[in-house]
């Protein structure tokens, strides 16, 4: 299957390399016509205001909404989570399709960026090894709507990963690690079966 990585700004190359390392055909997407050929999309980390503005300028917002409506898997990491959320507490261009309220820069500024291990049953499948999560000026999910499944929380209950049908969001950056379990989960579990 061919997966697109939105390559407007941010850490798109790391996702492309991770996918290619899994023998997945991955392409960088900068223009709407490139979306036609992909069966899934990753919106990477970066600056959500930058990504949203460039996506709007080049007509990518509606085609991504259509992809979501068609049931194709779409995953947002960090800035990508913001771009997919319906509510981020401020006005900025968004795809805005997932029933979550997201708080931006929720942990503070860069000096508060952190890494930690998380237990995420959905991707561990009984594997005892936790997932090493890197949070960079990260957002978190303040509240989820009906039909949203919480996948990962910090010890204090803060929601940092969730799924709604074919949509996946993570506050942290699996693409900055060598652990491909989230990418596998995205490829295997979010594809809507015929």
């Amino acid at each position: 299957m061919k997966i697109g990585v939105l390559a407007l700004q941010g850490a798109f190359r790391e996702h492309v390399e991770m996918l290619r390392g899994m023998n997945v055909d991955a392409i960088e997407v900068r223009l709407p016509e490139q979306l036609i050929e992909v069966e899934g999309l990753i919106i990477p980390g970066g600056e959500s205001t930058t990504i949203g503005k460039i996506a709007t300028q080049y007509g990518l917002i509606e085609p991504i909404r259509e992809m979501v409506a068609q049931g194709k898997p779409v995953w947002g990491t960090c800035a990508g989570m913001i771009v997919l959320a319906k509510d981020v507490g401020m006005r900025q261009p968004l795809v805005g399709v997932m029933d979550v309220t997201v708080k931006r820069n929720a942990f503070g500024r860069q000096v508060d960026s952190f890494e930690t291990d998380l237990n995420i049953p959905a991707i561990q499948n009984g594997d005892p090894a936790p997932f090493h999560a890197i949070f960079i000026r990260a957002p978190f999910i303040e509240s989820v709507g009906e039909g949203v499944q919480v996948l990962a929380q910090l010890e204090n209950g803060t929601i940092v990963a969730a799924r709604q049908g074919n949509l996946l969001v993570t506050s942290f950056h699996p693409e900055l690690t060598r652990d491909a379990r989230f990418h596998e989960f995205f490829l295997k579990s979010l594809t809507v079966k015929e």
């Binding site: 390559a7 407007l8 700004q9 941010g10 850490a11 798109f12 190359r13 790391e14 980390g45 970066g46 600056e47 930058t50 960090c78 800035a79 860069q110 960026s113 952190f114 890494e115 890197i134 949070f135 960079i136 000026r137 950056h173 900055l176």
Partner: peptide, 13 residues
């Protein structure tokens, strides 16, 4: 990782 990570997020910008 978090220091280099922020720079990764600035790429292409």
């Amino acid at each position: 990782a978090v220091k280099v990570g922020l720079a990764q997020m600035l790429k292409g910008g």
